[in-house]
Design a protein around this nucleic acid. Structure first.
Lengths: 232, 232
DNA sequence: AGTAAAACCGGACCGAGGTCCTGTTTAAAG
DNA sequence: CTTTAAACAGGACCTCGGTCCGGTTTTACT
């Protein structure tokens, strides 16, 4: 006996597959055995656990709305949800995990927009046009949720394993290839994503007062120079 | 009386002007009233304060070398330097400030290399060639000090006000303009700098095992597409 | 040099993130 | 329906970053 405890089964930091195949109450709604995307682990939550999960997210959402994400304390969330502190950590792993779960919920709209929404952001438009539309959409989204996203970035490396980023990355890579851009599509996608990073956008737009028009103009410039023609 | 204390006079987080006009013992060595660059405040340290500053940096350097920057505790630094905890915070503001001061010391080599070193990185070579040389130099530098840099990124926004970044940014902007690249030089410089960001490089090179060759190849590709011809 | 004010040193103290252990609830097997 | 084991809830506890205040040293002025 070592005294070491195995890590918590599967604290969720957003949806592991980035597809949100989950009903609003936190349980899976997909057909058994029909996972189109490799499902990491079944987050088959027990009834009360699922109930507390939503309570916690609800409480966290209200507290962040009132005091800002930066001032959110785990104890306050636990108290507001009427559960113990350990419960919060068991469910979400750590503070960042809780914040990521909150973010994940709000990312659904954006993801739906560029995966299955109307053109030019969604499918139906040529890849070049979708690329051009992607930047402004993400910039505005990041700007709306900057406090939550920034609070998430305490662990700088975690940002890269977040499913939402993976989704954006593969999406951008696909569009680049589809638009006939030659070169290392994956690294070019990383570059474009870097330009859209919340910390950069916040620094330029909020702290330095740069206009969104200017930021978006350079996005179009970048996409054009990378080989996807200008949006006509 | 409010009970509020004014913030500490001027905790240093690296050199405020990014030029390192400082003698090894921590005092300014420049001529009085001859500041070429707007000097924020005179960090005229008292004798014992300067002595303790170097002791602290020395202790911190040894501790990070032994246990890694992530495991560096302020109390351990204070104890190793033989001073009180409050002294550390008075001098460096917070943990990030201390780490930045450590980093700042190590950045001098890189800065000297691209500001006044030999071509193609330093002056003397055409701007396009200097641009191409800049990426690999920074990537290797970041890779060598990734643990220290990553430990610095606890406050995501702070990275943008660090003098070293400012220096790189203006340097890149200057080279872009000099190379005849049209477009928003400042934002393009931000884009290029984003590609060289430590977190990205670390994620790709260390976590995902990507080769430096591949990273550098795409750097050259980026610089070329931005308008500076390929390095001949 | 003597004196007064400002700056500094040092550690006690606080808050919050994260861990661990104990008693209890839940789901599955018989 | 009973039993049994796993998973969970809850709070006490620890560590560490950051603050605050009393005692002391350094500097500036006369």
């Amino acid at each position: 006996m070592t005294g070491l405890t195995p890590p918590p089964p599967s604290p969720d930091q957003g949806t592991p597959d980035g597809t949100h195949g989950r009903t609003p109450d936190g349980t899976r709604g997909e057909h058994p055995g029909l996972a189109l995307i490799p499902v990491g682990e079944p987050p088959q939550l027990r009834a009360d656990a699922a109930r507390n999960r939503t309570r916690l997210l609800e409480a966290a959402s209200q507290l962040t709305a009132r005091c800002g994400a930066a001032n959110l304390t785990m104890e306050a969330v636990a108290a507001a949800a009427g559960v113990g502190k350990g419960t919060v950590f068991r469910r979400f792993g750590d503070r960042t995990g809780l914040l990521l779960a909150l973010l994940d919920h709000r990312e659904q709209q954006l993801q739906a927009a560029f995966i299955s929404g109307p053109p030019p952001l969604g499918p139906g438009a040529p890849a070049a046009q979708r690329l051009h539309a992607f930047g402004p959409a993400v910039i505005r989204h990041e700007r709306d949720h900057h406090d939550l996203i920034l609070a998430t970035r305490t662990d700088p490396l975690r940002a890269y394993s977040v499913p939402a980023r993976h989704l954006r990355l593969t999406h951008l890579g696909m569009l680049l290839r589809e638009a006939g851009v030659d070169g290392d599509a994956e690294l070019l996608a990383h570059t474009l994503l870097g330009y859209l990073d919340t910390t950069l956008v916040h620094h330029l737009a909020v702290e330095r007062g740069m206009s969104l028009d200017r930021l978006e103009a350079t996005w179009h410039d970048l996409v054009t120079r990378l080989g996807a023609g200008p949006a006509e």
